[in-house]
Design a protein around this nucleic acid. Structure first.
Length: 124
DNA sequence: ATTCTGACAGCAA
DNA sequence: TTTGCTGCCAGAA
């Protein structure tokens, strides 16, 4: 498990500096350039394997974080860009990924298996 | 307090 | 293979 820094959370009544949201942001920041992971993979890495939806919710609020968070590198388990509608312009997420060398076709990442980065196996 | 809604995932048909 | 249902749980209304 990674250490958590207490950067500011979107949640106004946040109680812990190392809450779930922060952990999600930490892991997301560890995703290498040009690689992607899934909501469920992050949830499992954090030990809450059944709260993949909360990962999405956390990323939904990540804009309130001052630091840059590569939320575009998180897709669903099929490599589908299910979060594209939360980037203002619905094509931005795909553009960001293509800038990193990935190929998107119909909101789907090609060769998703090869690009997939699993925090569980990569970070231990 | 109660209900509804998800940037999900697993499993049964 | 592709739907459809269910568990999940933090916010919003």
């Amino acid at each position: 498990m990674i250490k958590i820094k207490s950067w500011k959370m979107p949640r106004s009544k946040q109680k812990e500096p190392d809450d779930f949201f922060s952990k999600v942001y930490e892991v997301t920041n560890l995703i290498p350039y040009g690689r992607v992971t899934s909501y469920g993979a992050i949830a499992r890495y954090l030990g809450t394997g059944r709260s993949a939806r909360m990962v999405g919710w956390a990323l939904n609020a990540c804009h309130s974080n001052h630091d840059f968070i590569p939320a575009h590198r998180v897709v669903n388990r099929n490599g589908l860009l299910s979060g594209k509608h939360h980037f203002g312009n619905s094509t931005l997420m795909g553009q960001l990924l293509e800038n990193e060398g990935l190929i998107i076709e119909d909101d789907q990442i090609l060769n998703f298996r090869e690009k997939f980065w699993d925090p569980l196996t990569e970070l231990g």
